[in-house]
Design a protein around this nucleic acid. Structure first.
Lengths: 263, 263
DNA sequence: ATATTCCTCCCATTGAATGGGAGGGGCACG
DNA sequence: CGTGCCCCTCCCATTCAATGGGAGGAATAT
């Protein structure tokens, strides 16, 4: 597939390079990058120069390289993520205003939970989610909701794997997990204590597209002892319903504006 | 630079392909894509298959292709845009709540104004800005603010060009533009009527990084007749100041938290 | 003064990129 | 039901860009 001795294609190497940057490592020298991604320096150098040419990478003030704004532009302009995020944002604000805890929006991507928006609350619970960050599907309330409403084959697939146990509360045993998912479907929400971070409870509800298919999860993260399910779950469900409605009304197909709407 | 007869490198072709998608054209058949980007069908097909492999593109329900979530993830994870957006969002909400008009955050990129966040208001003025969309620097209030606080050489460069006239209010004449910019610097904000969309006024203020350098513009878009500069400008300036402070306090360098902060 | 680490460029080798063309499937129109 | 049209996919001989070890040089640390 490529000239490279490692057998990687040019494109896969480009992706590897872009993938090497994250929020903790947002800038690197070319040499460091080369070591990190395991591509020979001369080749890394050449690829980086090309990426700089296309402005997918930028030079840093200290001579390092970082992701370019152009890359963000390309990725965001025609992306469904951007649309979903923008539609959901006002409803997330509502939840955030009422519940006053970290609020996130996430979806399933390649068997992980990918967070596409996050509203943080100062001084509240520890929040390990990051925008464009991922968490394992079985170890966060959002993941469990998304899994609970996934097709059975996918559920079986996930349950059949060896699941990592992060805390004493992480449910990894298939039968227990199945019961947990059934409970989530019955209640319409997930509320799980510290399955990835101790002393933190995640509460999540599904966001439906056109009434049936689940496309996202809406979640809040609260410190132990501050859970108030009676207030939180209705807030989340109301917002999730609002997002569903807004998703439908912005597209021609699907029940449009059958519902009256205040300004 | 490449095997292609057109002389384009592989990477530049990949960028061209990704660039072909935008919010209006978020899904295309491979043939349509091939025609649009001017790359022979067989080559486009091969590149698309590779991009699908890397999940930078996704298959649509109707067989077309669209941008993949993975691309958004790669671009957003280590991007400064994501940080800036997240830091600025609460302050934008404040403005939005008070002014109740479209509110945007933008920055200068390659001689254009690139919008990185937008809060919309239903039923308010026409809003042609799009998240990850661009506008010419001389034809929007945000652009004029960003230009007013740019280095003189860059200003001269922009003023030396042939500037497009979009409406009767668009200022394209260098001397007039210079006066406009001087006024913006003096007042600390830009307020310009319908220079790209008629019957719409843009009001924008600069967002500073570490007190001196301007990194973004904060803007609201109001319909003619509803301008209330006395209320709007202070709201914008307050929010812009808050963003500057939050930018500084999240980074070790720069005056951190000299200012008391309420929860 | 010496070692280390970085960036950059060179260039002979090699095999991946190229794209015209053919085959096949699906849909609409007459 | 046939015909035309458009799309996707694969093939394959040709061609030239990708590869990466190595060297030179600059900058910084020891």
């Amino acid at each position: 597939m490529a000239n490279s001795r490692s057998g990687d294609s040019l494109l896969s190497r480009l992706v590897t390079i872009l993938d090497a940057f994250d929020s903790h490592r947002s800038s690197m020298t070319i040499s460091a990058l080369s070591r990190r991604v395991g591509i020979p320096l001369a080749t890394t150098h050449r690829l980086v120069v090309q990426l700089l040419d296309e402005r997918l990478l930028e030079r840093d003030a200290d001579g390092g390289v970082r992701l370019g704004i152009r890359l963000w532009e390309l990725a965001s302009r025609g992306s469904r993520t951007t649309d979903l995020r923008e539609i959901a944002l006002p409803f997330m604000e509502d939840v955030h205003a009422v519940v006053q805890q970290h609020t996130t929006l996430s979806l399933l991507d390649s068997e992980n939970v990918l967070y596409i928006e996050r509203l943080t609350t100062r001084g509240s619970a520890v929040n390990i989610t990051q925008i464009a960050g991922r968490l394992p599907i079985h170890a966060c309330s959002s993941g469990l909701v998304l899994l609970a409403y996934s097709p059975p084959e996918f559920q079986d697939d996930v349950l059949g794997r060896e699941l990592v146990r992060y805390t004493e509360h992480t449910v990894t045993e298939p039968a227990a997990l199945r019961r947990l998912l059934a409970g989530i479907r019955q209640l319409g929400h997930a509320s799980v204590p510290g399955i990835i971070v101790p002393n933190t409870t995640g509460i999540a509800v599904p966001v439906f597209e056109r009434g049936d298919r689940v496309i996202a999860a809406l979640n809040v993260i609260v410190p132990f002892g501050e859970e108030d399910l009676r207030a939180t779950v209705p807030a989340l469900k109301t917002a999730a319903h609002g997002i569903s409605r807004a998703l439908g009304s912005d597209r021609p197909r699907g029940g449009t504006s059958r519902m009256p709407r205040a300004v």
